[in-house]
Design a protein around this nucleic acid. Structure first.
Lengths: 237, 237
DNA sequence: CAGTGGTCTAGACCACACG
DNA sequence: GTGTGGTCTAGACCACTGA
């Protein structure tokens, strides 16, 4: 026994994980490493992909837990809707936390994107989107101070800048030019989303545009794979 | 000096990398690790993100090299076009390699997607897309044997199943339902794309549909971040 | 406090490219 | 053979949780 290849290790872990009922705790990392005759480092490396797929969840100080089926937040990319609305459509409640609102000066790149005078004051709104179970996304919006004041953010903010702008209704929104990337979690992001540093995230970089063609919101969104499903219908060119 | 945090390490590496001209070789990993007073494991972990961003390239047996600006293969997701065509648009030549064509029986999930009798014969076409410099994508297409025979694949195949189907012209293609994911490279994928195991990849899972609504191609595509830029225009819902 | 996952270290060996 | 990156090991310490 013990074909000591990485693939064998992952297959063995799959067997172990799927044999457990949802919610149960796996043996500790040192115990599993000993049982599978690999070092703890190798074990942890092999488990990364299972966490990415949403099959397990690690909690520092507590242990590693098997996750059951997770409600997938599904969205077509043709339409821009807030995560709150997408989640509500499948009967899932989401909350937001770790909210920070800062005023800062736009750097050159941002000023160019938004067609602002260099050094303009902008608002940066950051927050984590959470389900009952865990944080699943991290969102950052950057807007000119004129578009959204600190007061407005402190009174009616539900976690979605888009919904807030739509409710406010002053700027007629047309579309969002969204760039799609894959990225690894930075140390800060990893901490906020409760994943490991370097774990795989899906990232959107978007500019929200009014029907006059003005960019009034630049946003960064980071999504945990395994909790979201984004799709698009592509015409054959 | 030597604030030994991971962030400090990455900042220091950024300084070192950007100070080098494109194409030059960095000091070896043991040398860099000693110089920065960290273990080789930590050094390598910190360098992962630089490779993901396309700033460096590691070559086993040779060294780690600084990469200059890379031609970005840019595409809107509304239209489905082959990578060859996208690359040609920016004046970039791509080739394909590691081609494998196998006949196999469709498993249950695939049979359901393509509405085939369970156990039908399908063709699986896999290949790596390469620029001058390096492999940048891995593509897998799965089609019913009736749609594309082995002969057709061996004669006129240029790397794009889409272009082949369009040239053949028998099936009027309508659209592709594409799911967008972020994933970590499996050991096989890492080897084929010459990246590290677990490195971040952008993944498309797509079903190509005729105007009769029949799925005639199921495909998996894996892209190296830093070489592609995908975007979409989203209407406000 | 003890036990968990998160990080880091020093060292070893393997796979690969070049001379 | 020599030197490179790729992998794995054994062990240590930190950060966090709950008793």
């Amino acid at each position: 026994m013990s074909n000591h290849s990485f693939q064998w290790l992952q297959a063995e872990l799959t067997r172990i994980i799927t044999a457990q009922p949802a919610g149960s705790r796996l043996p500790s990392e040192p115990a599993l490493a000993k049982q599978l005759k690999v070092s703890r480092a190798t074990l942890r490396e092999a488990m990364r992909s299972f966490e990415t797929q949403g099959l397990i969840r690690r909690k520092q100080g507590l242990g590693t837990f098997v996750i059951g089926a997770v409600p997938l937040i599904d969205s077509g990319l043709e339409i821009l809707e807030s995560i709150e609305i997408l989640a509500g459509r499948i009967g899932l409640k989401v909350t937001f936390g770790s909210l920070t609102i800062q005023q800062e000066k736009a750097d050159e790149a941002l000023a160019k994107i938004m067609n602002l005078p260099s050094g303009s004051e902008v608002m940066r709104v950051s927050r984590v989107i959470q389900t009952d179970e865990r944080p699943v996304a991290y969102l950052v919006d950057i807007l000119p101070r004129e578009v959204l004041s600190e007061q407005e953010l402190q009174s009616g903010f539900t976690g979605s800048v888009l919904d807030l702008l739509l409710r406010k209704g002053t700027a007629p929104l047309a579309s969002s030019r969204t760039e799609i990337k894959a990225t690894g979690a930075s140390p800060e992001l990893a901490h906020l989303l409760e994943v490991q540093r370097g774990d795989v995230l899906l990232q959107f970089v978007a500019n929200l545009i009014t029907n006059q063609g003005k960019v009034i919101d630049h946003s960064l969104s980071y999504f945990l794979p395994g909790y979201f499903s984004f799709h698009v219908n592509r015409r054959v060119g």
